[in-house]
Design a protein around this nucleic acid. Structure first.
Length: 288
DNA sequence: AGTTGCACCTGGCTGC
DNA sequence: TGCAGCCAGGTGCAAC
């Protein structure tokens, strides 16, 4: 599930029970996820107060009162849920879900925050705040698309001289951070740009072009709209309170192979191709 | 150096 | 109903 809008939705869901709150105990049920947990993980968290809960790209960042930052990445299938009781429809599934509950944060205020991740592509780390920017995870991370830096000039600068297709360039977290397979497809459709076009061809030698301006604008648009919708819910992904995000109903091309292109007056049909091993959905008529 | 492809892991869905 | 095969929201790294 988790591209930037889903991670931001999770952040907003966790903020009330984490920010300003003290961690009582942490239960760590296995030694690793994608990577090993850092040494003494639970001991270093117990008793700490979370000053604030932030996000950078697809990372959640819990700033602790001792100068450490708890870094959390959801991978492909990570999710959090709050509280021991999930209302209504979920009860029949809870024992199954619990198999993949890997970490439980028990807060002083009584909240119980459980991290579940069937595929275990997610991970957690503890990094001193002062070393965060230079850390290998963050050193090369690119433009934060909901911040102030993303505009046509920044896109042109990032894409200048790139032979890689736009699809690959937009997935590259060192250029623009936070987009994943869904929102790349959606942004390129909105921008009417082909996912196969070489990224450098919209870059004007590093100077903004109408295409780079448009692309920057629609990236921001699609992410803002998705965050407002509570992200996308594919398969069984839910928000921290169990609610479904609903942006998936507004996908224009993602997972819509064979459907008519939603661009007004376009006669095209949404196609699926594979680029760098991943599905790309686009309209070959209006995306050039 | 820039790009591509594979590996990591589990589960859901499709088609035989 | 069973089961093999394919596919999935990410990303680090080996191999061209």
């Amino acid at each position: 599930m988790p591209e930037l809008p889903e991670v931001e939705t999770v952040r907003r869901g966790l903020e009330p029970v984490m920010a300003g709150q003290r961690i009582a105990t942490v239960e760590q049920r296995r030694k690793d996820l994608r990577f090993p947990f850092p040494a003494n993980f639970t001991a270093r968290l117990s008793g700490r107060t979370i000053a604030s809960l932030g996000r950078r790209a697809k990372y959640l960042l819990a700033d602790l009162d001792d100068g450490q930052v708890l870094v959390m990445h959801l991978g492909m299938s990570g999710s959090f849920r709050i509280g021991g009781e999930i209302p209504g429809v979920f009860h029949h599934d809870r024992s199954k879900a619990a198999v993949h509950d890997h970490v439980v944060f028990r807060m002083q205020n009584g909240a119980e925050i459980t991290y579940n991740d069937p595929r275990r592509f997610g991970f957690m780390d503890l990094i001193p705040r002062s070393e965060l920017a230079a850390h290998a995870l963050f050193r090369r991370i690119g433009i934060e698309p909901l911040g102030n830096e993303l505009d046509g000039a920044a896109v042109a600068k990032a894409f200048a001289g790139k032979a890689a297709p736009l699809k690959a360039a937009l997935l590259d977290q060192t250029l623009i951070a936070g987009l994943g397979n869904i929102y790349v497809c959606e942004a390129l459709h909105r921008a009417r740009l082909s996912p196969r076009r070489a990224a450098g061809t919209i870059a004007g030698g590093g100077k903004p072009t109408p295409r780079s301006d448009r692309l920057a604008e629609v990236i921001r648009d699609v992410l803002v709209e998705a965050v407002e919708a509570g992200g996308s819910s594919l398969r069984d992904h839910r928000q921290t309170d169990g609610a479904l995000g609903y942006f998936q109903h507004r996908f224009r091309v993602y997972d819509r192979e064979g459907e008519p292109c939603p661009t007004p007056s376009c006669k095209g049909v949404v196609r699926r191709i594979v680029q760098s091993g991943r599905s790309t959905f686009f309209c070959g008529e209006c995306q050039r």
